[in-house]
Amino acid sequence: MTNPPAAPSATLLQIFREFLLIGATSFGGGVVAYLRSGLVEKRGWLDDRSFVELLSISQSLPGLNSTNMAILVGDRLKGTRGALAGFVGICLPGGILMLLVGMLFHEHGDYPLATAALKGVAAAAVGLILATALQLGRKSLGHVADVVFVAVAVIGVNRFHLSVLTVLLVVGVLATLWYRPRPAGSAP
């Protein structure tokens, strides 16, 4: 603990290549697991503690975890240019793929067979999102108040059609105040 970790050396090209690889292979979501195995285990650019710390910054900010992590890790390794290299790398494969898929879909998306397949895909996506929400909830909701905040956010958006921004600001501030720093021993 006394020695600061030696600054890991990585070139811009190495950063770009590693994130490109992660961006091209992380099928099925869960990019975090791919990031950890690439950055911590394979490259040794981060230890587990800094990885978790950067991940918690990513999760506390707007933006996708995957791109926020590319920015944060790239910046740690090589400053702003490293952040850009990581970002472009992780976005490029999926971006090009979705560009092509979008063009195909625009041309052929109204074929009956394609429409039928996409109906199945969309239904499965609902199951996937619900499973993600439940898994996240089990991990990070510990208090009755959390359930109230979740419910208020859902009802605000879906029932009262408030904008996501309004709900985010109002419920976000209320929840943060609920968890405001207190003297030890008097946590909610």
Partner: peptide, 9 residues
């Protein structure tokens, strides 16, 4: 505070 809000959203 953001954990329950993000799950709600």
């Amino acid at each position: 505070g953001l954990a329950p809000v993000s799950i709600g959203l």
